[in-house]
């Protein structure tokens, strides 16, 4: 008596699968941003301390966001919202400024021209991330407090 449709995964499984793909794309972007800012800071930091510090900050935020998407707990869920919102804000503000006043960002950051150098992935990814977080809430208000020993 085997089920005829064992091959088909359950819907919930499939959605969490897409979430995993999101995590991978976040991881790749975090790797790219980290690598680039490492090179910028190691070789030509004095040229543009502001732009390159921003690159490094963006890279760290991408790493934290990747970790926050992997960890499923109320605290990390909140951190995921904060970091992803920060990314969206960053790409919108820096993207706009780099077009309005190019002199301000002569040196490239991840967010220049809305992430053009990265195929606009930095602009699209936060929106996808927010969509995914909204669809898969970790209940913060409901339920008893979870142990927060593991940080």
């Amino acid at each position: 008596m085997t089920k005829s449709k064992t091959e088909k995964p359950a819907p919930s499984r499939r959605v969490s699968g897409i979430g995993r793909l999101l995590i991978v794309v976040y991881g790749v972007l975090a790797l790219a941003a980290t690598g680039r800012s490492f090179v910028q800071i190691a070789s030509e930091f004095v040229d543009a301390p502001l732009a390159y510090s921003l690159s490094a900050l963006a890279a760290v935020v991408y790493i934290v966001a990747t970790v926050a998407l992997i960890k499923r707990s109320p605290r990390w869920y909140r951190i995921a919202w904060i970091t992803i919102s920060f990314e969206l804000l960053g790409v919108l503000v820096v993207g706009t400024l780099s077009l309005v006043d190019p002199a301000l960002f002569q040196h490239k950051t991840v967010w220049s021209v809305f992430g053009q150098g990265y195929g606009f992935v930095p602009l699209v990814l936060p929106l996808l991330g927010m969509w995914w977080l909204a669809r898969h809430p970790v209940s913060v208000a409901a339920g008893p407090e979870l142990p927060e020993g593991r940080a």
């Binding site: 995964p9 499984r13 699968g17 897409i18 995993r20 793909l21 991978v24 794309v25 790749v28």
Partner: peptide
């Protein structure tokens, strides 16, 4: 071993 792992293999090659 899921379908998404196959997609992830592809994403890694394209990256």
């Amino acid at each position: 071993r899921s379908r998404w792992s196959t997609v992830i293999l592809g994403v890694s090659s394209l990256s």
